[in-house]
Write a protein that binds this DNA or RNA. Structure first.
Lengths: 244, 244
DNA sequence: TTGAAAACTTAACCGGGGGTAAAATCGTGA
DNA sequence: TCACGATTTTACCCCCGGTTAAGTTTTCAA
């Protein structure tokens, strides 16, 4: 019963509510208590707006709120959040694959585009693209039933020297960084091998696709997440993702 | 100056305002005085809601309102209306050509989809489809500068016997009719020749694409608009279109 | 331990967009 | 010409989602 009314909830709430839920999921990875002020900052609205919205979401049973402590998604809230994130990531994928946008410009466009996606349009987009499993930046696309595939990946910055694997995600929204990375070929799916690591968070030297060598500063490296060869391919505590 | 601020106006108004402007254009073909009650009926809202919106649009210089007489678009209002209609018809075309919807189901979907179209997305969609000039039902798509191409066509019901030409538009939103017509091949672009006309608004007999014969009742025929061979190819007082 | 700063919430207000009920106006037939 | 019915507008109400200003509560450092 809780299973069957899940899509109903999603359709009955406003775009703004979906935005808040998705942001709460993003910040707290679907589980943690999240501060209202942080939500407000991320959504670029005032704190009072957030507090009032949190109360509305609580009345609908989508979040729990402990005043002065934080907000946490209920199971229903998490499902709604995941369906919202699904639309966003599908939209990003669509903008890149079908409408030929650059991956650095899709975040904002997708935010607007989301509002124009009905269930039917979502299904047609999904089918046209062959049921993609990730957004252009590598973040997994939640299923239609509201479950998030888990990736077992980590930031390049914590990978030991002489490890090889595959670029899994690029966790930044900054267009300049995204453009630079795309030009360098550092995109999800590319093969990498970590050759060297400078001291004190120094630059990393990687071999890309067994061909090109790149030197990457730590700021950029922190945005690059990778799946290392030999690691099991699921279950990660970083599953939620910071972007999108 | 009035030319250059036209897109600015369009971006500064709400989705609801665009809906009202498009509806006023549709009813009055961009020129006539339109009753607030009629607008309300078409948009399925109350009269007071319409009157209040008309006041807002007037404050922005997009309509003129003579109380108890009616509403008329200003040049700026007409331009904004045409840009809204452009988005709607592009969305319909996109849903049919790219997302493989049936033409009978796109009207409502396009209404929602409109809200998610930015200027950039509009341009990419337009280019991907090769800059289409009509929506799937044959209505012309206004240009980016807000001008409506004129079609010189008329309802099949007023065409004389033994005339040949091309189906130009199908002016109905009823899914059943649209499905029937599509199955019969009566779609914009198809060739027709009017063979016979029954008395007293009786059924019409047409030859389609020089191959198939169809008998069409007057109700259906009223929805079929055609361009007859030999007619000049522009300038029509029916230019605005009743649907979409 | 306590008091100031920071974090968070409440209160009060605004505009957009929807509704109903009642008043105003228009047009027309007696 | 005048009164009645239909059309249209005004007056008030609702909720949503945003704001700033003014409290609370918590935290942290002296």
């Amino acid at each position: 019963m809780s299973q069957s009314n899940i899509p109903a909830t999603f359709d009955e709430i406003s775009d703004a509510m979906r935005d808040y839920l998705a942001e709460i999921y993003r910040i707290g990875r679907g589980q943690l208590w999240v501060s209202t002020t942080l939500i407000a900052e991320q959504l670029a609205v005032s704190s009072p707006a957030t507090v009032r919205m949190v109360r509305r979401l609580q009345e609908r049973g989508l979040v729990e709120h402990l005043p002065y402590k934080g907000v946490r998604l209920t199971p229903d809230g998490a499902t709604a959040a995941l369906l919202a994130i699904r639309r966003h990531r599908l939209a990003e994928r669509f903008l890149v694959d079908v409408l030929h946008f650059g991956w650095h410009e899709v975040h904002h466009e997708a935010e607007v585009m989301q509002r124009g996606i009905t269930a039917a349009i979502e299904d047609h987009m999904d089918a046209l693209m062959g049921f993609p499993t990730t957004c252009p930046h590598g973040d997994p696309i939640p299923s239609k039933t509201g479950t998030m595939p888990l990736l077992n990946d980590r930031p390049l910055t914590v990978v030991p020297k002489d490890t090889a694997g595959t670029i899994s995600r690029v966790k930044t929204r900054e267009p300049e960084k995204l453009q630079y990375l795309a030009a360098a070929g550092i995109i999800p799916g590319a093969r990498f091998a970590l050759k060297n690591r400078g001291p004190f968070n120094g630059p990393l030297r990687i071999l890309l696709n067994e061909r090109d060598e790149h030197i990457i500063g730590s700021e950029l490296a922190a945005a690059i997440w990778v799946a290392c060869d030999g690691d099991p391919s699921a279950k990660s505590e970083f599953s939620g993702g910071e972007d999108d």
